[in-house]
Design a protein around this nucleic acid. Structure first.
Lengths: 332, 332
DNA sequence: CTGTTAGCGCATTCAC
DNA sequence: GTGAATGCGCTAACAG
């Protein structure tokens, strides 16, 4: 490249990195270099540049499952933000498995990612702990960790759950059960706590059961049990939409009808929740907003390492559709 | 690192790259180095290594939209395959926009990605053409391009469409309309062609209309028009599930019922298609299979640059649910 | 068995 | 206004 244009590599470097003005390169020389570069399809080697400058312009993002609808929206938003700032997105799906997460994080750190978006935090997360000690800027999303010094962008789990329980209470329900998510995930914990508080405040006993994963299968399994053991249940507050979908399956399977016999409310408002049978009443969290904020917060943290740690809450909003209805007459 | 362990950097390099045996490093030395590395949390700098070896272990993947359900499954599969081979995934969402795609591809090439998974091919795709000329291994997925010399993994669009039309013919439908996708996307073209052929073979006139994007809104818009201009239509063959969903919306909006008045069949069998109202009859393409094959094919192409170009067809399968039914009596 | 040397492609400091 | 020299952290060829 440099030879073809009859200049030194450093001159090429100056022109191609936009320092033509500052470096006082002749307009003519600059033009020639750019012409040759275009002709040869020459592109600066990002790897070499990164080695030299110490900046890779790469952000790593760790998600439980890219194929998960709700998370895909977050990934999309983060990708948009990063692309606009010339960052590339190194994405890893861990299947919510600690070992995978560890391996992926190590790889990202080895790749000199400038920051990490970490969406698989557990309560006692060794990977996250190691990350926090390592000095690479990290922003958690969806779930917080127990680790101090790390910023996070998470749904307003408590407020959202309060909206859900209030809605059911207003509909006259008294036998309300919570189908919670994995017990070492912050969102499950907060949603559970808010549920328990709300029920206690209403002087009601709020039964709680826990799924090991956020899947329809788990929702089905748990609700099946629930319906057998506590048949007086008239409403289910699920920790997320997928669990809610499984709950609805169990209800129909038992010969009952949702919402006539049992109401179900989800959390997240995943895409197409309005098209399910029945359309799902749920607590809406803007995925785009969440991903957008997380990526922006990370970028700011990279720019200013001394930025104070913060936890942003993405607002929750009740979306009433058809999976919830008035308590059946027999129970009111 | 090297200093702490009192050895030369090259010795560290040998141990950490697993050449301890071949390089005849004393077990003792190797152990000490590994111990020190563990203690210091030392990790080899992938960037420097890539610069030296010319291998980045990075694969770029370009998708129209990560948040799209159907594609997310493909991304997931590809990610799994790559992770198993120690590759990292550089992901870019282009919103199916040529400029974005160009910018992202340039960035990936600059990052010395060893191969590209390209899922946004258009018929006359300048970006792809440039890519093919560039020497970086590329595998197209979902859509083929007009560019020779590039392998691809795509759905069996023709066979799938044939299954769809046959199904409607069997149900007695005669006034069948095709709601096609963008006209410069290979899958749209093949699905259209198969539709036209099947209808001609049945001695029927097959009307065709085209969406500019694969969205529910477009499906709605087009079907709305269709229902006004060709009210005798009793069945719609949509080029994908999202268009089908929009078609169903238009049908309901017009006061008609799907499938009683108008049947709708989609394509892809996107996640949750079985839970929509009504559950969607569609042509199933395994997303995981498609992503899996594409990633594996790329890996093989990277290993053997002279590998003959090939186009793999992922089989299509008819999934009958409740959005299709017998032709209404008035038309039979 | 391990140290020495060289160089990947770039950006930067200094020289002229 | 541009060239020359240096080094980012690593691996590979060679030396001993």
């Amino acid at each position: 490249m440099a030879k073809v244009a009859h200049v030194h590599v450093s001159t090429v470097s100056r022109v191609l990195s936009g320092q033509a003005e500052a470096g006082r390169i002749t307009a003519e020389t600059a033009q020639r270099i750019e012409a040759v570069a275009a002709e040869l399809g020459y592109r600066r080697n990002t790897v070499a540049r990164a080695l030299r400058t110490g900046r890779t312009l790469v952000i790593g993002m760790v998600v439980p499952d890219v194929a998960n609808l709700y998370q895909a929206g977050i990934t999309r938003a983060a990708g948009d933000v990063l692309a606009r700032s010339e960052y590339s997105l190194l994405l890893a799906s861990t299947d919510d498995d600690l070992e995978h997460a560890q391996a992926q994080v190590v790889a990202m750190l080895g790749s000199q990612a400038e920051g990490l978006l970490y969406g698989v935090a557990r309560q006692d997360d060794a990977v996250l702990q190691g990350l926090a000690d390592g000095g690479t800027p990290v922003v958690l999303f969806n779930r917080t960790g127990q680790v101090p010094g790390v910023s996070a962008v998470v749904p307003d789990d408590r407020a959202g759950t309060r909206l859900a329980v209030e809605h059911l209470l207003d509909l006259g329900h008294r036998n309300i059960v919570h189908v919670g998510g994995p017990e070492d995930v912050s969102s499950s914990i907060h949603r559970l706590a808010a549920f328990v508080e709300m029920m206690a405040a209403a002087d009601l006993h709020g039964e709680c059961r826990f799924a090991e994963r956020h899947t329809e299968e788990e929702g089905l399994r748990i609700t099946r049990q629930l319906l057998t053991e506590s048949p007086e249940t008239t409403a289910v507050v699920a920790a997320n939409d997928r669990l809610a979908l499984g709950a609805i399956d169990a209800i129909e399977e038992s010969g009952r009808v949702c919402p006539d016999d049992v109401s179900v409310i989800g959390f997240n408002d995943m895409p197409y929740a309005d098209r399910f049978t029945p359309p799902l009443t749920t607590v809406r969290i803007s995925q785009y907003d969440l991903g957008f904020r997380a990526a922006n917060l990370l970028l700011k943290t990279i720019e200013d390492r001394d930025r104070p740690v913060e936890t942003q809450l993405v607002p929750a909003e009740l979306v009433v559709r058809a999976s919830t209805g008035p308590v059946p007459p027999a129970f009111s």
